[in-house]
Design a protein around this nucleic acid. Structure first.
Lengths: 116, 116
DNA sequence: TCAAGATATGAATAACTGTTCATATATTAA
DNA sequence: TTAATATATGAACAGTTATTCATATCTTGA
């Protein structure tokens, strides 16, 4: 509690932390972004899109599951700017929104010591 | 569906994606790690620990909430190797597990164009 | 050994979220 | 315009998860 031997440093760190805590809104945005990429079904979609842009039909082919489920997941990823889309005739073609996405996935894998 | 103009490339991308899809177990590990850092209450803890190691009492001071809730969150973060702990007398001192954590948070923020 | 402080944990409830099913919208070809 | 294909979406249900409350464990000082 108050007396933890390192009281001085820890208390100062706690004060700095409290003072510099990001706004609730920023926290919620970061949270939403990580939640978006944290679901296994959505991670599969991201791993699939590493190999290039694809329309929904082919994403379903690559990751499995129903068209409806995949479509719901695509929406969540798009709402959070993890992926982007463009129309191409009857199809909607999806791709990763930017390089940050692959970078984050690779960081996670190096942290977990697993191959992508 | 099958005929999307880019059928050729997309189909190949889908095949490559399916062939190179990480094992279910790897997906689940990455998922668990992102889930661990995606909850607002846990993000606050990570943002707090950027300012240095702290014992539970000071973490509670920095992020708010009850001791019990914080302790539950600390466990989840520790189980996922996001943070580590060491005992110091009566206290348990927590800190970020490695540099990957800060790197991921910073990547997320640059993606979202928000300051930490 | 006993009391007090610091942290952890089990169980229960409440809130959240993913999937499914049915259906809607949008584009192209006829 | 109509039929067919591709994708999206609303509602409902099921599974997951965060918080709270009560209590347990562990460490230190007396």
């Amino acid at each position: 509690m108050q007396n933890c031997g390192h009281e001085e440093e820890h208390h100062l760190a706690a004060q700095r932390a409290a003072r510099n805590m990001p706004e609730e809104e920023a926290i919620l945005r970061v949270s939403a972004a990580f939640k978006a990429i944290s679901e296994p079904s959505r991670l599969k979609i991201l791993f699939a899109l590493r190999h290039g842009e694809m329309c929904v039909y082919h994403i379903v082919e690559a990751v499995g599951g129903t068209q409806s489920a995949v479509s719901h997941q695509l929406r969540i990823l798009k709402d959070n700017r993890i992926i982007k889309s463009r129309r191409d005739g009857q199809n909607i073609v999806y791709s990763l929104a930017d390089e940050h996405i692959v970078a984050v996935l690779e960081l996670a894998c190096s942290h977990l010591k697993c191959e992508l």
